[in-house]
Computed example of a mutant assay.
Amino acid sequence: MEGGYVDGGVVDKDCPDGDFIRLEGVEKVFEVRTRTGLLRRERRRVRAVDSISFTVARGEMVGYIGPNGAGKSTTIKMLTGILTPSGGRLRVAGIDPSRERTRLAQRIGVVFGQRTTLWWDLPLIDSYRLMHRMYRIPDRRYRENLDRCVELLELESLLDVPVRQLSLGQRMRGDIVAALLHDPQVLYLDEPTIGLDVVSKARVRDFLRELNAERGTTVLLTTHDLQDIEQLCSRVMVIDRGRLMYDGPLAGLHEVGDSERTLVVDLEREMPPIEAPPARVVRVEGPRQWLAFPASESAAPLVAHIAAACPLVDLSVREPDIEAVIARMLHRLEGAADPAPEGAVS
């Protein structure tokens, strides 16, 4: 029924599964006024999103990444209907978000990082009860979804706690539950593991994988944590200065960006720099050494070699900073004389 609960499996007939989310030359231009004198202001146009085109198939989990200010949040806000595009065409589940925002709201779930959809002064369970009524979710389905999500994300002991008293990690888990109570077909996630410890991150990732496998929920994920992308997404898109620069597998992004991971090795005593090609020592401080190696390579052979050859105490692997990966990728693409690599978008 229009305006009420929509089952997650119902999709508009005019929306092919391969084009579940579709953007064609989408642009967003903002007009910004800056003070140039005591009584004078200058107007200028800022192009936050510049002719972006891509499609996402139903059931895909896609990473949408880029440096701060690249246009990620603006894109997501247009996909949810919060912002209206300045040009181009976009559809989500066959719906024009800006023209049918209420209808689209029944089909999407959103978690916007530091911004909560929960009621600040109410206990967590009261926020869920309000959403139960707002989305007109059938009682049985609401209870099933709530019980399943709360159990998997371990929120049972927090249901009666006011949202303002929750830690950032607890609130993030609470927001994920809120976004899924009405069985959305599309889930937009902005930094879903921010503020979570290692165990909680793993729990959220497992939960999202299970959700995608069981219900075919389409997920668009923005994050600065490459482990989120590596463990959840088979495809990644990179946006920079409003333009889509790459669309392909994560391994291809590492190759284009020539990115590196870092192995931090703690030895029993000071030693000369470790020789373990293709890794290279980039820093030494007493018994601790930092080795850089290609991000596309497995760390296992390197770790095995060092463990067999050196008096090892401890080690850890640090992922490449996403902004550094993108910076290297852009530098290579802009300086390359040959055609752009496969997966890169000119």
Rank of each mutant, 00 (worst) to 15 (best):
I229H: 04
E260H: 14
P85I: 14
L181R: 11
L39H: 13
P341R: 09
E156S: 11
D96M: 01
D314I: 12
S73E: 09
R107N: 06
L263T: 10
L83G: 12
R103S: 12
L124S: 09
L158D: 00
R209S: 01
R58G: 06
A93C: 09
E214Q: 11
R40T: 15
I194T: 15
Y64M: 11
L104A: 12
P184D: 07
L253V: 12
L155A: 00
G169V: 00
F30A: 13
R40M: 11
R209A: 00
R171W: 01
V11A: 09
E42S: 14
I274P: 03
G242I: 02
I274Q: 06
G87F: 03
D206T: 04
H182C: 13
G343T: 08
V186P: 10
F54E: 08
A292Q: 02
V163D: 02
G59Y: 00
S298C: 04
G71P: 11
E268A: 15
L208S: 03
E230T: 05
V198M: 14
R318T: 08
M61D: 01
V32C: 08
L181N: 13
D266L: 07
L253C: 09
P85T: 11
L263G: 06
R283N: 08
D19H: 10
E285V: 14
G88I: 05
M245S: 11
P162S: 00
V29H: 12
S200R: 06
P97I: 01
Q289F: 08
A344C: 15
L180A: 07
M1E: 06
C233V: 09
A327Y: 11
S127L: 02
I176Y: 02
N212R: 05
I108G: 07
L159P: 00
M131G: 10
D160E: 06
A276N: 10
R107V: 07
A299S: 15
E260P: 00
T217V: 15
L333D: 01
E214F: 05
R203T: 02
E323L: 05
V236R: 12
P67S: 12
T55E: 01
R99K: 11
R261Y: 04
M271I: 05
D121F: 04
G343Y: 04
A213P: 01
R241W: 00
P272F: 07
S316F: 09
V265I: 14
S127F: 01
R164W: 03
M131N: 15
H132E: 12
S346W: 13
R41H: 13
W290G: 03
D160P: 00
H331F: 08
L159W: 00
S200I: 00
W290L: 02
L250E: 03
E270C: 12
E230R: 10
L39Q: 06
A337N: 05
